[in-house]
Write a protein that binds this DNA or RNA. Sequence first.
DNA 1: AACTAAAATGACCCGTTGGTCACTTTAGTC
DNA 2: GACTAAAGTGACCAACGGGTCATTTTAGTT
Lengths: 214, 214
Amino acid sequence: MTDPATAKGRRARGPSPAKTAATRRALLDAALHTFLEYGFADTRMSDVAKRAGLAKGTIYRHFDDKTALFGEVLRTIMAGAAAGSALPRPRAEEHTGDFLRRAVLPMLAQLQASGMIAVPRLVAAEGPRFPELAAVYRRVAIEPVLRIIRVYARRAERRGELRSEGLSQMPILLAAPVVVATLWNGLFASDGQLEVTAVFSAWIDLVFGNSTAR
Amino acid sequence: MTDPATAKGRRARGPSPAKTAATRRALLDAALHTFLEYGFADTRMSDVAKRAGLAKGTIYRHFDDKTALFGEVLRTIMAGAAAGSALPRPRAEEHTGDFLRRAVLPMLAQLQASGMIAVPRLVAAEGPRFPELAAVYRRVAIEPVLRIIRVYARRAERRGELRSEGLSQMPILLAAPVVVATLWNGLFASDGQLEVTAVFSAWIDLVFGNSTAR
DNA sequence: AACTAAAATGACCCGTTGGTCACTTTAGTC
DNA sequence: GACTAAAGTGACCAACGGGTCATTTTAGTT
């Protein structure tokens, strides 16, 4: 587009673009954690700035307003999640229940460790006030997951591993227990946390049969 | 305590207590619907008043502040729900899956028709900011439901209808699909609503087996 | 070292809204 | 119909917090 000389000359003075990007990242990270902890309404722009070690005004050099910041936070998260998703394939004769355990449990553990597992809860809580964002989240995060579930639901149905054909038509059933466990943990933070992996495992047992006593 | 004459004399002038109670009910009802639609933070006290056909100041003659109003709304809902819950019993040889369909589906349909099915979503969204309320909700609404689920999960396990013993240990698995469907409907209000009863029915099929082809 | 453009700052502004209270209206009692 | 206690009212207040912008700091260039 513009020739290199112009581009170089244009950026002749002032801090490097890398530094700018780093500031932006710091703000997004601080915002994510603050939003997760307090929700949108109870998040103070000044708190986000403080957490990032910056002044409130700085936020507005990178984002139009609070809503835009929230949107960028979610967009960034989704982009990162999409990048880091690489599901293994089931082995030829592997029982689909075993495969799901093998594939999904480590992923859940990682999500839990990184704190990212709370994101769906944030979306569920704030989504109604940001319908466009909810729609993006659905398209970018939810639908792909449902599509994958549908693939393996079909496989399990083909192999006669399930008691009904319902799962491929309603793939959300497979994800529901994980979502609810996450909500639970957000609601009752202090007392009686649910181990998300244990919930999922019990769910697989119930639907596909316990692996030991199949 | 106080003798009747005193009590009567004390209330000798001014509007009747019945009228007061009606006002209170109108406010609670208006508040419930406004909270359900906008959430706690985006609910304006003036809007609640307007919806109830009263002035804002009137709210403060019945409730200490916004938080107290929210709490009373939830407490009232819970009391009402607890009162109106009468589950039938399974017939002697009835398959537990059939029984659950028979017992739960009408209840879900009724909850959906009355709009009360959105309450869990409200609690999930606002709960983290009101931990005591979340705890009350858990004790009054969630735990009783889980207890009932556990009873029928045990029955099903005893009768060999399930593929694992997990359900009685993790009764939340039964409720999860309904909760998630409700969240979904709140998030994507305009497009692709889920029929909660259909979701529950598919769940039963998957876990207990389809009633036609058992 | 001087220069300067971009980045960062934070005191300030101002709209919004929860909550107050002096006043008005309502409805039982005598 | 006069009396009065409770219910209801809505203009008003104060605080809070999102967003602005004149000023200062930073760092690449010459």
